[in-house]
Amino acid sequence: MITPDMLPSLAFYGFAFILVVSALGVITAKNPVYSVLLLILAFFNAAGLFVLLGAEFVAMILVIVYVGAVAVLFLFVVMMLDVDFKSLRKGAMHYVPLGVLLGGVLLIELFVLFKARFGTEVFPQADTLPEISNTQQIGAVLYTDYIFAFQVAGLILLVAMIGAIVLTHRTRPNVRRQNVAKQNATTQEDAMEIQQVETGKGI
């Protein structure tokens, strides 16, 4: 029978199952829009796993950043671009050996990481500082002990952002842009001229 202390495990298997199934769906779905939607579902379940680990801050940031921003742009691009995914898939079988190799290396690394043999169960470590919320814990070390790594990450993002703007920005001639300051500075005298028109003469 189900007892209350089994609930976390049940939730874990629920999240993990949906995560794996939707991740499989991402790479197998025929329609690219379905792929992105399944990717969002996968992100969600990953966030659920983080909540189970007691890392609620990371879970929420995962949803805000990946679901709320990154995946929106993915969806945007997939919907806008008329990419012929059939022709892209043609050579896909070509890469299978490489994919299997990479996947195998990752799997072995995971086993080494957790020193897991079949039959032993691996549980997450309990919270070492339960009285301080993990938002405060992250805040306390992020801007002090890890300030260098944090700033480097920020700089890389900045460079990537500037790079994206430089690559996509183009100046087009003959585009009329609104200049708000100029519009606001225009007076009645600049914009129009009052003339007395005499009958039968015109201007």
Partner: peptide, 25 residues
């Protein structure tokens, strides 16, 4: 009474865009 209630609200409200985008597509 979630510890990160505000982030939860922000996350949920930032997902509202999907309904509109999916409906449009």
């Amino acid at each position: 009474n979630l510890n990160v209630g505000l982030l939860y609200l922000f996350a949920i409200s930032s997902m509202g865009v999907y309904g509109v985008l999916m409906a449009g597509w």
